[in-house]
Each structure stands twice: as structure tokens, then as C-alpha cells.
Amino acid sequence: MTSIASANGIDIAYESFGSPGGRPLLLIMGLGAQLIHWDDRLCAQLAEQGHHVVRFDNRDAGLSTHLHDAGAPTPGGPAPYLLKDMAEDTAGLMDALGWQAAHVMGASMGGMIAQTLAIQHPDRVLTLTSIMSTPDLGVAPPTEAAREALFAKPVSTREEAVKQAVVTSSVIGSPGYELDREHIERLAGQAYDRCHDPAGVARQLAAIMASPDRTEALTRLNVPALVVHGADDPLIPLSGGQATAAAIPGAELKVFPGMGHDLPAPVWPDLVEAVSKLTAGQ
């Protein structure tokens, strides 16, 4: 069941798994993605390990507030907001949940937001798990094919959205694992039905591009951290995960061979085990 929280001046849609008495674990999704992109089964596995899991829609995604009045960013123009603002949304959601602190896990742009949250509010992040992310775009440039997939022309129909999702996944997904076409198509259809806002995705991308390098700030963190990355990620290459782990004191780097810019189901057990070990220690 989806709930709505008022946070940082906007509405944020969220869902929870597991017992409210469990270890609080906040999941932050990536560019253009919605809370449903954190798979129900993965959330359930995390809940089974004693976590109270909350997944949510970032601003300009899903059922959370969309900043339509800001319009689509113009090339070379100012970004309507930055990752630091999205991190404040996250802190605001924690306030609404009654969480003084939480274990935080982010994927891709969500990893960037999680890093920023830990920098801005170090007392509120019990542990940090950064997945297929980077502290700076410059250290992990995408392949040309991945760049083209990222900047593909926005679609205008549900059918086009489903087709584009399959094409994108075939480019940036995990070459070491079979492409689950049926699941990708079903999820893309659900996401389109829930919300379709290309201008919102463009505003999120502008926030990523305009936000500063976090490397130096990450070196000052004192938080148990796990960095997860695919060895074959073409969108944010492994160098991004390596730079993240190198910057955060004591961070553990876990690399999955054959994994690209997604989370294939076969890696979930190892991921859940690593995250649970991290959070249980705090």
C-alpha cells in the first residue's frame, strides 16, 4: 500500500516492508526510476533479515511531487535543483517516518543521493550502501552505447516505453545474466501507467550533472559503508565504485562479475547477505 508523506515542502510517495520494529532501511532509486524498481521480492528478502524497509519515489518520479512549473531544463541553463535538495527530501521523509537515523541504500543516482545525505546529515545515516554509483561523473564516464541509451529520445506511448525499456536493458544491463524480457516489459508498463514525465527525468539528470564532486567530502565520513558494483557496468563503470570505496574510510567494495547497470535476481542473495551483515553490526 502506497502512503504519502509531507517532506521538505513536497509530497513523497512511499511503501514499507517488514516489521516497524526492524532495523530501518531506506532505499533510494535512480534516475527516472520509481519505487517499484526496487523489486518486491528483493524488498521482502531484506525484510526477512530483520529490516523495516521503506522504498519511495524521488521528486519528479512516480507519485511524488513533480516540479512541472520548472519546465524542462535548457542546455547550459541552471538546474532547477541539485542532489543536495533530493537528499533533504530524503531526510524529510525520515522525519515523517519518525526515524532519527536509518540504514541507507541507494542505486545509481540513488547512490549519489545517499552519499550526499551522509555528507549533509552524518548523524542520521547508520550505514551507507552505495550501489552502481560514483562520487563524480568524471571518474566513471559511460560507454558511447550507454550514453546513447541514456539520452535516447523520450517516448510518448506505453508501447514505445515498453520497447525502449527492453532496448535500454540490453545495452546497460548485465551481460553475465540472461535478460528477463518478460519482467522488463511488465515493469516498464507498470511504470508508464503509474507516471510518465520525461521533463521530470530531465530535471533529475540536470541535478546530477550540476552537482559537485563528492570525493573530498566522502573522505571525512565516519560511517560503515558497503560499495556494490558490477564489473561490466557500461553506464557507470566499475571505476565509479572503486572511487567511492577509496574515498570513504574503511568502506568495503563488493564487485559482481557479469553485472551491469541493474540488479539481476541471481545477485540478490549475496547482496542481501552483505547488507544485512553491515546493518546488523550497528
Rank of each mutant, 00 (worst) to 15 (best):
L82D: 11
R147S: 11
D123N: 13
R158A: 03
H121N: 14
D89Q: 06
P154T: 05
K84Q: 15
S130D: 10
V155R: 12
G111Y: 04
L117F: 03
G92A: 02
A149T: 09
V167S: 13
A165W: 07
T90Q: 11
R158D: 04
G176W: 05
A107L: 13
M112C: 02
L137K: 00
L137D: 01
T168C: 03
L97A: 02
V104E: 09
L83Q: 06
R124T: 09
D136E: 15
D123E: 12
P141G: 09
A91P: 08
D89H: 06
I119T: 13
E160M: 00
G138K: 14
G98Y: 03
D95H: 02
A101W: 03
P141S: 06
L117C: 01
E148W: 06
A165H: 07
H103I: 00
V104C: 03
T116W: 08
V171P: 06
D95G: 03
D95L: 07
I131Y: 12
V166Y: 07
G173I: 04
A149I: 11
G138Q: 11
G138R: 15
D136H: 14
A161E: 11
T134I: 11
M105D: 07
A79T: 02
P142D: 05
T127M: 11
G106L: 07
K153A: 12
S130W: 02
I113S: 01
A91Y: 09
V166G: 01
G138W: 03
H121L: 14
M132P: 03
A102N: 10
S108C: 10
E160C: 02
S169E: 15
A149M: 09
M86K: 01
E144C: 03
E144M: 09
A161D: 12
W99H: 11
T90N: 12
I119H: 14
T129D: 12
A79G: 01
E88F: 13
A145M: 08
L97W: 04
A102Q: 10
V167A: 14
M105E: 11
V155C: 10
M94I: 01
V171W: 06
S170A: 15
Q100Y: 13
V155M: 13
V171R: 08
A118C: 01
Y81W: 11
A165P: 04
A79R: 00
A118K: 05
D89V: 06
G110W: 09
I131N: 10
A87P: 01
I119S: 14
P142G: 02
Y81G: 07
A152Q: 12
V155I: 04
D85H: 14
K84V: 14
A118G: 03
P135H: 10
A165C: 08
M94K: 05
L83I: 15
H121Q: 15
V162P: 04
H121M: 15
V125A: 14
E148K: 15
V167Y: 15
G106S: 03
T90W: 12
I113V: 10
D136S: 15
M105W: 09
A149K: 09
L126W: 07
L117S: 00
P80I: 08
A114I: 04
A96H: 00
S130M: 09
G98L: 07
Q100L: 14
L128D: 13
P175D: 08
G92R: 00
P122R: 07
A79S: 09
